[in-house]
Design a protein around this nucleic acid. Sequence first.
DNA 1: TTCAACTTGGAATTCCTCTTCCGCTTGGCT
DNA 2: AGCCAAGCGGAAGAGGAATTCCAAGTTGAA
Lengths: 209, 209
Amino acid sequence: MTDAVPPLRRDAERNRQLLLRAAYELMAVNGLNVPYEDIARAAGTGMGTMYRRFPQRQDLLDALFSEHIDTVIQLAEQAAGNEDAWAGLAWFLERQLEIEAQSRGLGELLRSRSQATALVQRAHERMTPLVAGLIARAVRAGQLPPGATPADFAAAHVMVGSVMDASRDHAPRLWRRALAVALAGLRHADLPGDPPDETAIDLLYNDHR
Amino acid sequence: MTDAVPPLRRDAERNRQLLLRAAYELMAVNGLNVPYEDIARAAGTGMGTMYRRFPQRQDLLDALFSEHIDTVIQLAEQAAGNEDAWAGLAWFLERQLEIEAQSRGLGELLRSRSQATALVQRAHERMTPLVAGLIARAVRAGQLPPGATPADFAAAHVMVGSVMDASRDHAPRLWRRALAVALAGLRHADLPGDPPDETAIDLLYNDHR
DNA sequence: TTCAACTTGGAATTCCTCTTCCGCTTGGCT
DNA sequence: AGCCAAGCGGAAGAGGAATTCCAAGTTGAA
């Protein structure tokens, strides 16, 4: 049961590409919440076109970022195959953040500043078990403190991301220091309190604000 | 040259207090950007009252939070007197975050999510030299890696704060794990890249969007 | 008690962005 | 060439918050 989507007319397809390009560039600089009007203007089309092609902002985000998100999922899979669990975790976090460094919008999406699309939702569902496996292995190997959970890893991600967002315009490499701090901290911290349960992850990745 | 502010009429003063109380409570839960109308409604006054008393949101923030900010400055001074530099730093960061945990709005203010008031500006100017001194001492004592700077400390603050904001509603203690990670990370990280200069601090504390 | 100055509540206005709508244009097919 | 569904641009309407304004109500000094 294919959905048999009729292909777009040539002019419509051209405009769609113009809109996607404009949206990508604006979102890379300004984040996901660029006004539709700005995108339309940058693309040289009218608002009508914008809305006909992407009635929901989600539709736009999906079209823009789904391949990047697939890439991140593949990173997680690759990391999960690493024999050295800690090395896999560190590598995965660094790669993911490097991707986010390319685009503010993508970073916001992956850390879901209030834009948890179904796309990202599913990505997290795929990646969390992989990360959880790595963490369990790393704990067993003594590479991480007992009690470390996927939520702590997610927290590290959010933490470095917040520095990236704050410094992106003027010190685009500063986040690497934050990453070094977060990674070293995960290894050496004495984690207080009860280990957070699985729901803590969703919480970190959803709707800050 | 005193400014000889004429005292408010009794009803005006009463309403001022009602507004401050309402604003404090709303901002504790929802952050600094609560609509003026919500505050006025919660206080049981009209918008006119709100605007006559606090024409700029800054005026309101100053009245609400200046004493908290003074408290934080005193924490910094006290920490600077600690003979063990690292202990002073860790203690200061934890205390400051505990205060921020009381109120989302105060946290946003101290980490200046785009609300860098003159008040906070001055507080940072007072605290940064104190923190810088502690860090220099800690580095000399081998408690922090060489190259650690106040900006790295500020980054740790922002990092933990981001976790606090994300988890405040549902896991109000989770930030302590993030703090443990950040502190352990500062001590053990191998900080890459050139040490950030002083301007990096302002950058971290200003206008994350 | 009186009254000028100060306050007040909330309606009106402004500003922005989102979203819809519609008369005109264009691509693709016959 | 001619048709017309698909597509187009941008004006108009809707919604939410910021800010202004003013007729009516209070306060407190004389």
